[in-house]
Nucleic acid binder design. Structure first.
Length: 293
RNA sequence: GCCUCGUUAGCUCAGUUGGUAGAGCAAGGGAUUGAAAAUCCCUGUGUCCUUGGUUCGAUUCCGAGACGAGGCA
């Protein structure tokens, strides 16, 4: 019985502004590698300044995949990411190069490289809208009660206030005609991954880097970028759920000042970095590198 | 100089008819299975400005002082 050998790959992870792009490029140069970005926002075209996409200079001739490939109006989810990344890994390995995954987005990384085995059920816009309407008129509990009927096991694990997760669980359970808790599972990791994590032991230091980077984004014209996107696409959910754009939305409506926008972007980015770290800390295979000093 | 109001958690402020106090934000921790830069959960001891007095007991009442804001001269 011969077991197929798993592909070796490197994963460089860390919170926003930790410098993982640079490290990934260094490693790619050293090991003849190509980079696959695991970032739910850099995937989009035109989302440049806000997502701190690497410039051509910063890419330093290294091939970067899954950056700048989706239109802002297109949907892109974990499943799309996983499928594309898996293909890319096969392709890169077949050319005798080393795949290096660099990111950011905890759910993407865990699904591609760790143990999440996601149910294959596409989003159902109408159902979501319907359930959200019920939540608005009758309260979230009404929707939660529906989930308790469909999948009491999962309902126990999802907090009754977490509408997004409740809705998805109902969506999956209804589509498959079986409880989502039975459709989802854990799997063996598909690859032989060397995990490298970037972090600052001193949280203040990380937060300072974030604050500085936001100031740089403003200097580079983040306001104009946000303006263009809102004018071109309107109030897309995607824009309203992306740090760096969502805050400008209120500013363009005259609700808050420029100073407040900048402060909010910094604040939201700090919160985001903290949430990212919660994802990564759960992964005991990560070898951590200190970024300060 | 006089009058009024204020001084409580890192910040903004509630509150205690006298029995040592609580919200929002911040901060920290966690969850996370096709929206994930999304969504959600948990965590609040702080000379209640200082100092005298009244009281069994004062952050709460009274006096004095300090600081801040406004008003009158």
């Amino acid at each position: 019985m011969t077991k197929k050998e798993k592909h070796k790959i490197i994963a460089v992870v860390g919170p926003t502004a930790s410098g993982k792009s640079r490290l990934a490029v260094e490693l790619a140069k050293k090991h003849n590698g190509e980079i696959i970005s695991a970032d739910s926002r850099q995937i989009y075209k035109e989302f440049d300044i806000a997502t701190a996409k690497p410039s051509e200079d910063e890419k330093a001739g290294i091939v970067h995949h899954l950056i700048d490939i989706i239109e802002p109006t297109q949907e892109f989810t974990v499943a799309d990411f996983t499928d594309r990344a898996q293909q890319l890994i096969e392709d890169i390995v077949s050319r005798n190069k080393l795949p290096i995954i660099a990111g950011g987005t905890g759910l993407y990384l865990r699904t591609l490289l760790q143990d999440f085995d996601i149910p294959r059920v596409e989003p159902n816009k109408e159902l979501r809208k319907e359930l959200e309407t019920i939540a608005e008129s009758e309260g979230v509990e009404a929707v939660y009660d529906m989930l308790v009927e469909l999948d009491p096991v999962l309902a126990q694990k999802i907090h009754k206030n977490n509408l997004v997760k409740i809705v998805r669980a109902i969506e999956v359970s209804k589509t498959l005609n079986m409880p989502m808790s039975q459709a989802q599972g854990r799997k063996e990791p598909m690859y032989d991954v060397e995990w490298i994590g970037l972090n600052a032991e001193n949280r203040e230091y990380l937060y300072n880097r974030i604050n500085l980077r936001v100031d740089e984004m403003i200097e580079k014209g983040l306001e104009q970028e946000a303006k263009n996107l809102f004018e071109k696409y309107g109030e897309l959910t995607l824009l309203l759920s992306t740090i760096g754009y969502q805050e400008f939305h209120e500013y363009f409506k005259g609700l808050i000042s420029k100073e407040e926008v900048i402060e909010q972007i910094k604040q939201n980015t700090r919160h985001y970095a903290k949430r990212q770290l919660t994802w990564f800390r759960q992964n005991k295979d990560i070898k951590w590198m200190e970024i300060e000093g």
